[in-house]
């Protein structure tokens, strides 16, 4: 790995909900003791199903929400614990592309106004040329500047979302399911655009997705999460999964090839409620390889040659 740009240590987020006159408040741990390092220029994928904590993790890293515990360092600067003014300065170095290009653009702003906003927020001058340059970088015509979001397709809107994220030349960009609400044809365009921008601007990505096939195509390293915790880190896209959950995820995604058709052995059961986690490994209840130990203790994440897995009985 190259020099580490992002270092996350023991990151935990607990949410409290409920709590009324008669109800006791309940706590749920959305992200549990996550350690993560992203090297400069690297694309790290975070994959898991809904409720696994991947979006919460992304928001924690950018400090859009406050962590309960843990440390976040970006390029040597500690992000956790710094004050709002200092955080605002650091924010220029990081950006986020959101999942839904329909709700993440202000419908009453023209595209030019949307793209000028990051500059305004940071009190920087912005020129017509800068806007055209940003549009060009995401392969949109300069004439798009005068349009409103409702005049654009989903793919074009997501290009605007990307241009806005890159406005202040960040080093680190979190991509939170940037293609999940787009057609596959458009998804492929956006992925190729992101690859080109990474090259052109020397970006580092954290790519959040539920699509393991896509993550394996696009990412250098892959972090698999289940119910708030990291269960496996694959050192490269071709690595063979050792955690039964990663295996199940892989078996559940269908290749576009009828010859690869197979008997589906779907996972039984569903993700348990995060309010009421079983003791031991959170996956044990659905796991065909679970042994006695899995139901009593949480398996630690142990690493060997860059491949880390949290399982007592790995494949």
């Amino acid at each position: 790995m190259s020099e580490p740009l992002l270092v996350v240590k023991g990151l935990t987020k607990r949410f409290m909900t409920g709590g009324g006159w008669f109800a006791r408040p309940r706590s749920m741990t959305a992200v549990r003791s996550v350690n993560l390092t992203v090297g400069r220029g690297e694309v790290v994928g975070v994959v898991g199903e809904s409720g696994c904590g991947k979006s919460t993790l992304a928001r924690l890293i950018l400090r859009l929400i406050e962590p309960t515990e843990g440390d976040i360092t970006l390029g040597g600067t500690r992000l956790s614990g710094i004050g709002q003014a200092e955080l605002r300065r650091e924010r220029r170095r990081m950006a986020m592309v959101f999942q839904d290009p329909y709700s993440s653009l202000d419908p009453r702003y023209t595209i030019a106004e949307t793209l000028a906003e990051p500059f305004r927020v940071h009190g920087l001058p912005v020129t017509q040329q800068a806007i055209s340059g940003m549009l060009e970088a995401v392969s949109l015509p300069a004439s798009a500047a005068l349009r409103y979001p409702h005049q654009m397709s989903g793919g074009q809107r997501q290009r605007i979302g990307i241009a806005r994220a890159l406005a202040l030349r960040p080093e680190f960009v979190v991509l939170d399911e940037p293609t999940a609400s787009l057609d596959v044809s458009i998804q492929a365009q956006i992925i190729e655009l992101l690859a080109a921008l990474r090259e052109g601007f020397g970006l580092t990505y954290l790519f959040i997705s539920h699509d393991l096939g896509l993550v394996r195509y696009f990412c250098d390293r892959i972090v698999v999460m289940y119910l708030g915790a990291v269960v496996e880190v694959l050192p490269d896209a071709r690595a063979v999964p050792r955690h039964p959950y990663t295996r199940a995820l892989m078996d559940s995604s269908f290749a576009p090839d009828p010859k690869a058709r197979r008997e589906i052995a779907p996972l039984s059961g569903e993700i348990p409620s995060p309010f009421n986690l079983p003791p031991g490994c959170a996956f044990a209840g659905r796991c065909s390889r679970a042994v006695e130990a899995c139901r009593s203790a949480s398996p630690p994440l142990t690493e060997e040659g860059g491949h880390a897995v949290a399982c007592f009985n790995p494949l």
Binding site: V184, S185, I186, A188, Q189, I190, A195, G213, L214, Y217
Partner: peptide, 23 residues
């Protein structure tokens, strides 16, 4: 052919995922 080419497959080389221009 283009629709099939939009889906990443096992072992696909980087840069070989082809979208369909336009909409």
């Amino acid at each position: 052919a283009a629709l099939i080419g939009c889906i990443p497959r096992e072992g696909m080389a980087e840069g070989s995922l082809k979208g369909i221009a336009g909409s």
